[in-house]
Amino acid sequence: MAERAKPRQAQDKLAFLLSLVPYLMDHDRVSVATAAKHFGVPQEQVREAVRLIGVSGIPGDTAAYQHGDLFDIAWDDFEENDEIVITNLVAIDDSPRFSAREAAALIAGLQYLSALPENADREAIATLTAKLSRGASAEPSQVAVEASETDDTLALARESVTKGVQLSFDYLNSQGQAERRRVDPLRVESVDADWYLRGWDHLREAVRTFRLDRISNPEVTAEPITHGATDVSLPDKLFEGSVDDLIVTIDIAPSAAPLLADYIPDNAETVEHDGRLRTTVRVSHYHGLKRLVASMPGVATVVGPPEARAVVAEWAAAGAARYR
């Protein structure tokens, strides 16, 4: 693994060097802090790159890397004021092209995001895709993601954030109860074809995650929001554990384990058992569990506690009974 990781890092650093030079050319004088912020990298990475650029160049006519064959920077400004001024340029005039795979990654990403209200202008997306293709050094790789469907809820969530007001909607929780919820939208997240809204829930007075396809009758209200995206720090995991969570032991086929990754706590102990993995999952109630397990027939089995097994058995049996 380490051997593979090393060239990757070197490639990342090379891409940064080749990108930093044209940026510096366009800025007669720029602080290390500004450049680091622009590229989204630590300041020390910029300093390291500038030090390297300052002593790099081309062999030149004499093949001896003479002074004029090297980049030069105003070293005093750099060492004393943390500012970058390039005083001699060699070889590089412009930004590099995207690789076929780089362009393809962005194009496929754009395609996937076509449901966002920001992407309502399909023509703009087509123009952008064409620019990326033309800006690549080879035909972009054949990788694509199905366009997501435009969803009214997203447009309304955006509108409510713009206006600073709450969004209300009917929401069916996984126990099957419908409630009218009022939410300050904080962030829209997705995993493949599933989309989620995370927001401050005024009913629960806490951050909650809502599946977009469980939301009905969304409405922008006149009530001002109390929590903005910058006021609340959202955990990375879409589904957070809580102290009230129920712990369930489950046997799962190794190939299907990734499907449950979101529910398996970080410290869960996993052991092999008859060719299956035995591990624990956290769920807020058994009603969510029964749906999850019923979608993995023969692949995931609840081992215990007995109540959890019974809830799944009853759910599946009730479903099967409808076919008799």
């Binding site: 990757r8 490639q11 990342d12 891409a15 940064f16 080749l18 990108s19 930093l20 030079v21 044209p22 940026y23 366009d26 800025h27 622009h38 590229f39 989204g40 930004s95 590099p96 092209r97 995207f98 690789s99 795979r101 780089e102 362009a103 393809a104 990654a105 962005l106 496929a108 990403g109 996937y112 995001l113 966002l116 920001e118 990788v143 993601v145 997203l154 969530a157 955006r158 954030v161 713009t162 939208p185 904080l186 962030r187 829209v188 997240e189 997705s190 995993v191 493949d192 995206a229």
Partner: peptide
């Protein structure tokens, strides 16, 4: 592919364009 998209963004930033922040924040993932 995450490395490739990261490098593509570094190259994009070499053009020096400042970005506009989207109104609603997104965290999409494939």
């Amino acid at each position: 592919i995450s490395g490739e998209s990261r490098r593509a963004i570094i190259k994009l930033r070499s053009l020096g364009v400042e970005t506009t922040e989207p109104v609603l924040t997104y965290a999409p993932r494939v």
